[in-house]
Amino acid sequence: MECIRLEYDVDGNNFSSAGNASDSVKRTLKQLGVSPASVRRVAIAMYEGEINMVIHAHGGRAEVEIYPDYIDIYLKDSGPGIADIDLAMKAGYSTATENIRSLGFGAGMGLPNMKKYSDEMKIDSTVGVGTTVFLRVKF
């Protein structure tokens, strides 16, 4: 099936630019006429993922495939990896530093939010190698 492919580098050293990729995807979906409710679910899920890549994994890469009825998002990083995925998925559990919290993040809601706003979510992670998060949101 034909799809629109988008790729982004997520800069791990620049907290200010975190959200650029999600913002671009949001605008693209709007232009394609996807419903505002679906656009928002995609935007929030992907933005949380982007923030995670910046605060936990020194950035990474976001690959996006837009199909007529859904969007697939792959967030790939070479960060420290997640040792216990079940624990990381728990609302309120966070390994973020006090510095990150002072910026308004690190409440332990990132991964739960991504699950909440997506229709499918898969985490592949190896400690010391990196993490790939797959998100699918149906329109």
């Binding site: 907290f15 200010s16 975190a18 959200g19 999600s22 913002d23 949001k26 928002r40 935007a43 929030i44 933005y47 923030i51 910026l103 308004g104 993040f105």
Partner: peptide
């Protein structure tokens, strides 16, 4: 910080 605007934008 800028993420306040980003958050508002996503919502």
């Amino acid at each position: 910080n800028p993420q306040v605007v980003r958050t508002a934008e996503m919502m």
